[in-house]
């Protein structure tokens, strides 16, 4: 089984300040990977880099997937909830790759949309304006759209923040279904219990990787304390990073 993504001495950041510093490693095809770490550790930045929203400051991300095989759900999805659009139409956007700018949505597509809405438990909500949805219902809607995107690599940035237990377990079941279908899922998560139960692989990030591998070996008390210590603040006067600085990277076994 090949790698779906490889990071090569990857540095991502803003205004030349690194948020992810010299990351090396491979994500195997079909992995179910959690990214953990304190606030400001570069987790969201790394997902943005993978999604192609942010260009690397140095190094590169090698991937064999074409752009359109990646689905990305940002931390705070930018959905304008005052816009007059209903659940059905928002979910239908997931078919963009098939329908594109001008393509029609046929009977088969309608069935897919209805199935996706049913899969996230929102039957009967099709005609509801998105402005009337609760936080959990909104996240279910966005997951239904992800479902339709039919992506090989799915990136989720803190998908369970502020959701109740029932919604989380429904959405985790969807993630496991995606993984069972051979898709790669990378999720930024803060709930370490949830990661221990459902995610076999974890990357613990504190700008530089603290540990990356089997979840139970990564999420140790020692590593977590180390991550907290390493996550210093943004330094206005930080010197330029020496080009020959040894890589802090590590590789999955």
């Amino acid at each position: 089984m090949g790698n779906v993504l490889s990071f090569r001495d990857l540095t991502l950041g803003y205004d030349r300040h690194p948020a992810v510093h010299h990351l090396d490693g491979d994500v195997p095809d079909g992995a179910l990977l959690a990214i953990c770490g304190p606030n400001g550790a570069g987790k969201s930045t790394l997902l943005k880099g993978i999604a192609g929203v942010l260009s690397p400051l140095a190094g590169r991300i090698e991937g064999k997937l074409p752009d359109h095989a990646v689905a990305y759900l940002p931390q705070a999805a930018e959905v304008d909830r005052s816009f007059p659009i209903d659940v059905y139409d928002l979910v239908a956007m997931g078919l963009w790759r098939r329908s594109g700018l001008f393509g029609g949505i046929g009977r088969a597509d309608r069935r897919l949309i209805e199935e996706a809405i049913a899969a996230v438990g929102l039957e009967g909500f099709e005609a509801r304006p998105v402005g009337t949805l609760s936080g959990g219902q909104m996240q279910r809607t966005l997951f239904a759209r992800l479902l339709l995107q039919d992506a090989r690599l799915i990136l989720l940035d803190e998908p369970f923040t502020a959701l109740d237990a029932g919604t989380v377990s429904d959405l985790v079941a969807l993630i496991e279904r995606w993984n069972g279908e051979g898709r790669t899922v990378i999720a930024v998560l803060h709930d370490l219990e949830l990661v221990r139960v459902h995610f076999p692989q974890t990357l613990l990030l504190a700008r530089t990787p603290v540990a990356w591998g089997e979840t139970r070996e990564v999420l140790t008390t020692h590593n977590l304390a180390e991550a907290r210590r390493m996550c210093e603040a943004w330094d206005e006067d930080a010197p330029a990073c020496a080009p020959d600085m040894p890589s802090h990277g590590m590789r999955v076994a």
Partner: peptide, 10 residues
């Protein structure tokens, strides 16, 4: 509705 999503697909 969702500029971030459009950027990610097109």
């Amino acid at each position: 509705v969702d500029p971030g999503f459009l950027r990610s697909v097109s």
